[in-house]
Design a protein around this nucleic acid. Structure first.
Lengths: 189, 189
DNA sequence: TATAAAATTGAGCATATGCTTAATTTGCAG
DNA sequence: CTGCAAATTAAGCATATGCTCAATTTTATA
């Protein structure tokens, strides 16, 4: 394994922690370097600037947030259910997955003057991905009536909230997937 | 009305906006002053330092988050339902209420080296306030079985998520209170 | 109008930040 | 061991930040 790649990965891991704790602006390149136990100059040997570290993390996050729209459209209820289950399982077993979740939430709510990031984020907008699927689920009678955007925000807000709490307090017990499904599922059927 | 109080209120309003956009560390006293249209020196005529502006906002937020435990214990379901309704109504009609909601969420997830803030936040911990009430609701059979902490995080995560989206995109339609109640209500009864 | 208090400015100090760069160390193929 | 590329450091520059303070303007009141 390339030693340089190892370093780079280490920097990204450390940067993720600091970004979560202090946000984009509160994170200094010096602190990332310090937590990695090296000089700050080395950071700029691997990354061209602070933004590029952030951007690289955002790219990873965007990739993780992407869903398979085709499969989802075939069985909205089943897909949402399985996706939630998978996400919770990952959050439980792999701390860095939860961290990435929290990070992406912060990213969404932080104004950063970098058009690369802004455009990247549009492609990671959960609502944009999910609204068509929710609509499909409603047409099939699997999901309850109501504004799909609201439903989306409620469901994923809950997931985000849970992830946040889990990262802050790792002992937080995760909810049952059914509870969240009850928010969106059509029970009148 | 005292002119000084007016200024102070203006600073707090502006600061809330910047804190939400850029977080604690990304917010500079100069930017707050600039957005208020005055020199940065004036800011320190009204506030002793940056932390004290932040702290004052946190205090307002904590006050708004407090619930009346006694009434809540008497009728958990009804209280949660009414509280949610009130919160949504306020978010819809009063933008600064929604902002404060988002701000308090950011505050919870930002590490700030100020013990005053840390201790203040403990008293504003939503889960600490709600878990006993959820337990009471479960004993009465109004709320479903399951870990109260999980239930709490799920419900309030959803509310937070909705508030976030509403502040970022004011046209976001709010969900029906019933949807969120379905997450926690006992439907087997 | 005179005067004191309050409001406001703008320059500036000490420190922190993003980033560069020349110099030094490390690791390794020949 | 030698030599060379990659890894790493440390100093430093330009700028931004939190905050102070003396000086100026505005306001109010007698």
């Amino acid at each position: 394994m390339d030693k340089g790649d190892e370093r780079k990965k280490q920097f990204l891991q450390v940067a993720l922690d600091v970004f979560i704790e202090k946000g984009y602006y509160g994170t200094s390149t010096r602190e990332i370097a310090r937590r990695a136990g090296v000089s700050s100059g080395l950071l700029f040997h691997y990354f061209s600037n602070k933004d590029s570290i952030y951007l690289e993390l955002v790219k990873v996050g965007v990739e993780e947030m992407k869903i398979d729209t085709e499969i989802a459209m075939e069985a909205p209820y089943e897909y949402l259910f399985q996706t939630m289950k998978k996400v919770f399982k990952q959050i439980e077993s792999n701390p860095s997955f939860g961290k990435m979740f929290v990070f992406m939430d912060n990213v969404q709510h932080t104004v950063v003057n970098e058009k690369d990031i802004t455009s990247l984020l549009e492609s990671a907008d959960i609502c944009k991905q999910w609204i068509p699927i929710i609509l499909e689920g409603q047409q099939r009678g699997e999901f309850r009536e109501g504004n799909p955007h609201s439903l989306c925000v409620a469901v994923f807000g809950a997931i985000q909230g849970i992830a946040q709490e889990k990262v802050r307090i790792p002992s937080t017990p995760l909810p049952k997937t059914d509870w969240l499904m009850d928010m969106i599922v059509n029970r009148t059927k």
